[in-house]
Every structure is written in structure tokens, then in C-alpha cells.
Computed example of a mutant assay.
Amino acid sequence: MSISPRPPVDILIRRLDPELPLPAYEHPGDAGADLRTTVDAELKPGERAVLPTGIAIALPDGYAAFVHPRSGLAARCGVALVNAPGTVDAGYRGEIKVIVVNLDPHEGVSFRRGDRIAQLVIQQVEKAQFHEVAELPGSARAEGGFGSTGGHAAV
């Protein structure tokens, strides 16, 4: 059985740095389009920086973009995103920036202009209507959280 792909969502994009490529999917089936930095940056162990990407987007109502880390940077360099995933709301029109942190305890990390630093995932989002109640209905999990279901030897 073959699943037909959904048509892509049209995203308006403003290139703030004409020399860098637009976000792109590296492979067919990728969920995230690569974001690149417009600047060079050096981060010592424990340091963080806000890196500009040189793009601004206009998302359709009912969509949001989420800035996710790149697994290769995390595995090889200890680079993480401070607020992962970062949320780009449909109404935001400013430059997308990525807050990176060097979690390696010993080695610094260098970013060069044009390096792929994160990935942008576009998703449809639901609007919720909140209803205040005195009690919530019960569930099998109840108030168990923060590792209450096990799955690790330390739990």
C-alpha cells in the first residue's frame, strides 16, 4: 500500500542575507529544513550565543515553525539549543535566530558563516479553548510524572 504525500505548505520567506541559501531539506522525507548562521562565532565550554539565520518567514494561520537541534552537532560537539524546540509563531515576522549552547565541558566549538546550525520543522497546530474546573477526570497515570513509569536503572 502506497501513501500519497500531502502537498507542501506554502511558506513566504524573506531572505535577509542574499548570499546564503534558503532553508532546504537535505534528503527526501526529512522533517526539518536546515537553518544556517550568517555569522562566525566561537563558544567556550558552557557559553551560549544567539545566532542569526538571515531569514524571516510568514506562516499561514494554524501553523507554527519549530527550531530543533541538529543531532550531529549534539553528538560530535556537545552543541544544544537552549530553548529547544524554539517556537516561531504564525504572526512573527522578524529574523529567525537560534540560541546555541556549548555543553562540552572541555572543548570550545566554532561556527562559520553558512554552517548548518539547526533545523526548522513546520507543523499544523491546534488552538485550544481552556475550561477551568474544580477537579480533573481521573486517568491511569494520575499525577505520576518525572520518571514515574520507570524505564531507567536509576528509577
Rank of each mutant, 00 (worst) to 15 (best):
M1H: 05
S2L: 14
I3H: 06
S4F: 10
P5K: 11
P5C: 01
D10Q: 07
D10W: 07
R14H: 15
L16A: 07
P18H: 12
L20E: 04
P21H: 13
P21A: 08
P23Y: 09
A24T: 09
A24P: 01
Y25V: 06
Y25Q: 05
H27P: 00
D30A: 11
A33W: 12
L35V: 07
R36K: 03
R36W: 08
T37V: 07
T38L: 13
T38N: 10
D40W: 15
D40Y: 14
G46E: 05
E47S: 13
T53Q: 01
G54D: 08
I55W: 11
A56S: 04
A58H: 08
A58M: 06
L59K: 01
P60G: 02
G62M: 11
Y63S: 02
Y63I: 02
A65I: 04
V67P: 00
H68N: 07
H68T: 04
H68S: 04
R70V: 12
L73I: 11
A74P: 04
A75L: 15
A80M: 15
A80C: 13
A80G: 08
L81H: 11
P85I: 11
G86P: 01
T87N: 00
D89H: 02
Y92Q: 01
G94R: 00
I96T: 04
I99E: 02
V100M: 05
V100G: 02
V101L: 09
N102R: 10
D104P: 03
G108K: 13
R112Q: 10
R113C: 01
R113E: 00
G114S: 00
L120S: 04
Q123F: 05
Q123I: 02
V125A: 03
V133W: 06
L136Q: 11
L136F: 13
A140C: 08
G145R: 15
F146H: 10
F146Y: 11
G150R: 12
V155D: 07
